[in-house]
Design a binder for these strands. Structure first.
Lengths: 328, 328
DNA sequence: TACAGCCATGTTGACGTAAACATGAAGCAA
DNA sequence: TTGCTTCATGTTTACGTCAACATGGCTGTA
């Protein structure tokens, strides 16, 4: 900065004013300074600026696997929203979801230069009592328990599961089998609970829950079992990947979809419309979740009032994998 | 820091030494300082540290869509490798891949607090002449032209396409049709070129290239056309999503896979093994690409010598979607 | 002319840290 | 004992920026 000031024949303060777009600088001076900046390739030092201002203009995002469809879309939306607000994203991945790793990540976070944090951890794995985020650091949680002391932004899991289950019941199926997500996942639990509640509400028998782990393999394994059971006519998988695995199992077993068995997923991945048959599923608006969480966080950072929770609705996308229950 | 120093009855410098784990501090003093830190909830200020050291311990990642399978896996690997080296990741997304947006991202980058940058932009969209990264800022490019002045880490696209094409030729197919990626993508071009070269090398006819855009829709559209052509017996799609779209088109047209037509993809997404039929494909090791690019970048940041390019091999994963050419 | 008010610009200092140098005590060999 | 080394710790300073205050020229009015 001093070099620029020298080059332009002004003081450092004037350079600072120009670089921050302040109005009280003479036009000719401003141009001289800008030219000097270009000539010298001046870049404001963000560390010094952050030190001075006490703000980093950066948002931390804590995530487990990036490799899940939903997390990725959410991250994308968070990044876009943050960029639009002039914030950058600092990614804090947690490779192995052990409690120790989570604590470690939070410790590292304390050292990070962030003004706020979005936590995208769906599991019970972090015990809030044990993680001490710096006081006053705004936090927003995505896809977790509502029992946290931080604001929560989340998809309406219960509504989505209800839509899927009712869709199948309305097609005339006696009941709906459920391939669930892992027991540690809040969203998996909420989908399962809502599936069960919807069945009861409609007076349908509640079959045993099939525990999965979001993977195609889990869907495949349970799909093989279900395919062998002639009484099964409708399956609701807790995500599209498990639905895909189930579809494969049904194909291998020679069961027709949807003529003999209907399958419904959850997520609406880009590929789901091209599965064979194209998958009926519950669409989640991850982009909206991401955008809303950033908005909430920014309110926490720049605003003053308390931040409200946000629930994002879902939508049932009906495709060829679900159809009327077979006669008889 | 001053408070901690006062509380522990030492100088700020000693606090600094403790906080950096230096060895030349008496054990009793160290404990006293650590205790004071805990009592006061002291967190080192990363901005001040960065200002003093001129290092941020952060790596910038510039990406187009996060929502592509490969990018996501790569980002995951980059994040893990960076975390292992004590670096954090600053994500710089480019929402709309126009040239202006790219330049904007680079401008923003200049303001960012990063020690190096990984560029994951596969298209020609950025003209190096026009983007002025700060001199001396280490850069590694993933999945781009080898004509950049920066080190490149990339999957061996040509080898992968050759493996796929030869696999089909060896199964007795007269030739192989290709659903290509977008013309702006370097990796798409390399796969196409290698496909073509392999066909020629084996004396096979080279059918017209079918231009796609990575999407399942593109695969579906071209798949419908190919399904209607009785001479087509083998399809090599430039990625798994287009292969999935093609599979759907073939199903709809009632063409048997692989009895009548074989299909091979590229990427090996997690879902590909569960497609119907399970997809033969070329596996890319995105995690390796990510890890290597971070290693290369760190060498550029912390090392001194020139950084070499890295090529990561691929592997053909044979599944049920490819089989011998139909007789006659 | 005199004085107030405004505006562009300059000067000073502080943000929190760590490198460089300084100090002083303890240990050890001649 | 003397002189030299080693090691823990303290002091000073600079990193680059920007807020706060200071300065000085210009304009307009009484």
């Amino acid at each position: 900065m001093a070099d620029v000031a020298l080059e332009a024949g002004v003081s450092g303060q004037t350079v600072s004013r120009v670089s921050n777009g302040r109005s009280n600088v003479d036009e000719s001076t401003r141009e001289r300074v800008l030219e000097a900046m270009n000539r010298l390739g001046y870049r404001p030092n963000s560390a010094a600026r952050a030190l001075r201002l006490g703000r980093f203009r950066s948002i931390g995002v804590i995530m487990f696997t990036l490799s899940s469809f939903g997390n990725m879309r959410t991250l994308d939306a968070i990044a876009s929203a943050a960029a639009a607000a002039g914030y950058s994203i600092t990614l804090i991945p947690i490779a192995h979801p052990t409690r120790g790793a989570v604590s470690g990540a939070f410790d590292r976070l304390n050292q990070q230069a962030v003004d706020g944090v979005v936590i995208v951890i769906e599991a019970h794995l972090f015990d809030e009592a044990h993680l001490d985020l710096p006081d006053g650091l705004p936090v927003v949680v995505i896809d977790s328990s509502a029992r946290t002391r931080y604001p929560v932004v989340d998809t309406d899991q219960a509504e989505g599961a209800r839509l899927a289950t009712e869709h199948l019941l309305e097609l005339g199926h006696q009941t709906v089998w459920h391939i669930a997500g892992p027991a540690e996942s809040y969203s998996a639990i909420r989908r399962r609970d809502s599936w069960e509640a919807t069945l009861r509400q409609h007076g349908a028998v509640v079959p045993p829950v099939l525990a999965g782990d979001w993977s195609t393999d889990a869907g495949y394994r349970h799909g093989l079992v279900l395919a062998a059971d002639p009484t099964v006519t409708a399956i609701f998988a807790a995500n599209d990947q498990m639905a895909l695995g189930a579809l494969r199992a049904l194909h291998e077993a020679g069961r027709a979809v949807p003529a003999e068995i209907s399958v419904v997923g959850f997520d609406d991945m880009e590929e789901s419309a091209s599965f064979w048959p194209p998958l009926t599923t519950v669409r989640q608006y991850f982009d909206k979740v991401g955008a809303r969480s950033v908005a909430a966080l920014l309110e926490g950072i720049e605003g003053d009032g308390p931040v409200a929770n946000v629930t994002v609705p879902t939508r049932l996308i009906v495709r060829a994998s679900s159809g009327p229950a077979p006669a008889g």
